[in-house]
Structures are given as structure tokens and as C-alpha cells.
Design a protein around this nucleic acid. Structure first.
Length: 276
DNA sequence: CTCGGAGCCTGTCTGC
DNA sequence: TGCAGACAGGCTCCGA
């Protein structure tokens, strides 16, 4: 499930691979993946790849004009670079961008992923604060948390507040910060906000260093797995021992999704265990 | 405004 | 063994 570190990994890998190449052809195999006519991008030059929130962004240019193409991978999307010449075929291929020295393949088993482009980069960016920027400091985080009464774990997934976190890293961050997922977001003390900020950066930075987490689906731009899964402390580890205290990791459904946590390291009130 | 739930989608796993 | 149903979850939409 591509979250910020996985998208960062793909974008960083793609940047030197696609930079400077013309888009020579576009094929859309699944029309549902894009509302716009992607064929309009033929003749544009790729000037770079960068992460746009949780999306893989390609900066395009044609003369003085600029456009950005954003690929949202959602659950199972992939952006794969294939050097050489076609034909390119692979299961679940939804769209294909032929460049001068290879092709970018948008592959997505579950078809949640989307492609869109705009001449205004800002319209492609989610509203939330990017936790990898300098603007993500304790004061800014505290202000965002405000007086929200939302449960902290649910709050962390809100892309209109913070951009880039998904279920895996939200669980990991809260475990590192020793904060209960059921705390009210706006109830954190100043030291706790600082701790949450520090933990968020620490988890994300280490995940980026390790090219993301491959839990079931994720592949990077070259089709390789991530390496962060060996560092996971709680996610996907229900019943296993907490690496910090030895207690059994628990899983509870929260906001319709699994929350993994250590009841000793992250003390606090929480609902009774539910089945799902 | 906030909040919770349904729906989207399909491969994989579980249980009968 | 075979099949039905649960499950994974990022995001949008809708209703309370």
C-alpha cells in the first residue's frame, strides 16, 4: 500500500530514468483510470519526477508551457519503468507512456489508482501539510491538531491535515511515540505534540532510507520490494510480541480499519476487541 | 462543520 | 476439493 515513503522511493528512482525524454505515445488500456485524455501528453517532455503528496508526479514541459501528471497509486498501483522498446505487456496494465528510451507502465490490480494532469501543480496537491517539509514543526502540528476530538489514529490518516500517512505508518508512528490511537487528537500536551512530530519524521525517514514497506503489493519503479517491513513494530504483527516490552501486539478495528498497537507501550482507554 | 459508514475493486485467504 | 464470504485499505460520497 503505497504511502509517503513508497511514493518517495518510486519518484526518486524515476527521476533520473525519465528526465529529459519526450513522451512519444500514450496508451490507455483502462479508461476508468483517467478522466482526461492522456493522449494530449504526447509530444511533451518529461523534465523530472517528484512526489506530490501521496502521488507520483511527473513534471512536463513543452516550450515555455508546464504540466504536471499525477499518478495516485491508492492500494495496488505501480509505476514501473521498462527500458528498451516494446511491446510491453503485463497483467493489470492500465496505461502506458512510451518515452524515447523505454516506457512508464501504470499497473494496478484493483483499479483504484488514477492518473490526472494539470498546468497548475497546486491543484494536484492535497490540502494537508507534508511531514517531510521544514514547515512540519511542532507548532504547525499543534495548530493542525487544534481542538479536534477525532481519535488520533484516525486523524493521522486525514490527507487534508497531514499528507502521506496511511495505515501502516500511522500505526508505527503512534507506537514509537507511545501514544494511544484512541487519544483525542486535540488533547495532546505540548511535549506530546513534539514527540509525535519527532516520531513521524523518524519513522518516515527510516522507511524512505529502506525504500518503503512491502507488505503484500508494493514494488518500486524497478519492480523490487521495499525493505522497511523488517522494522515494523506493530503493523501486521497481531499476537506477536512487542519488540520494546514483550507484550502481545493487539489489533482492533478503528474507523473501519485495523489498528495495531501495544497495550503496554501505548496505554489508554480503547474499545473492546472487535472482530472483523 | 464533524463524523461514520458504504462503495469502489480484485486477489488471496479462511472456513464450511 | 470446491465454493462462498471475509478481508485488505485510500479515497470519495452521502446522510445524520
Amino acid at each position: 500500500m503505497p504511502e509517503l515513503p513508497e511514493v518517495q522511493t518510486i519518484s526518486s528512482q524515476l527521476d533520473p530514468l525519465v528526465r529529459g525524454q519526450l513522451i512519444t505515445a500514450v496508451q490507455v488500456l483502462d479508461p476508468r483510470c483517467a478522466e482526461q485524455d492522456l493522449a494530449e501528453l504526447v509530444g511533451w517532455q518529461v523534465s523530472g519526477a517528484q512526489r506530490l503528496g501521496k502521488q507520483v508526479g511527473l513534471e512536463l514541459s513543452r516550450g515555455a508551457d508546464r504540466r504536471w501528471l499525477a499518478a495516485h497509486l491508492r492500494m495496488t498501483g505501480r509505476m514501473l519503468w521498462q527500458p528498451g522498446s516494446g511491446p510491453w505487456q503485463r497483467p493489470h496494465l492500465r496505461a502506458l507512456f512510451e518515452l524515447e528510451r523505454g516506457a512508464l507502465l501504470f499497473v494496478d490490480v484493483r483499479r483504484f489508482g488514477t492518473l490526472r494532469f494539470s498546468s497548475d501543480r497546486a491543484t494536484l496537491l492535497p490540502a494537508g501539510l507534508d511531514p517531510m517539509t521544514r514547515a512540519f514543526n511542532a507548532r504547525a502540528l499543534g495548530k493542525l491538531l487544534g481542538e479536534s476530538r477525532q481519535e488520533l489514529k484516525v486523524w493521522l490518516l486525514r490527507q487534508d491535515r497531514l499528507v502521506g500517512l496511511g495505515n501502516i505508518y500511522a500505526c508505527e508512528i503512534l507506537h514509537l511515540a507511545r501514544l494511544s490511537p484512541w487519544r483525542q487528537a486535540g488533547s495532546l500536551s505540548t511535549p506530546e505534540v513534539a514527540l509525535l512530530r519527532r516520531s513521524t519524521r523518524e519513522v518516515l525517514e527510516r522507511a524512505v532510507e529502506n525504500c518503503g514497506t512491502t507488505f503484500s503489493d508494493f514494488q518500486d519503479a524497478n519492480g523490487n520490494m521495499g525493505g522497511y517491513q523488517r522494522y515494523l513494530s506493530v503493523y501486521g504483527r497481531e499476537g506477536d510480541v512487542c519488540k520494546r516490552c514483550g507484550e502481545a501486539v493487539e489489533r482492533v478495528v478503528q474507523g473501519g480499519r485495523s489498528t495495531f498497537f501495544c497495550p503496554v507501550c501505548q496505554p489508554g482507554e480503547h474499545p473492546v476487541r472487535q472482530e472483523r
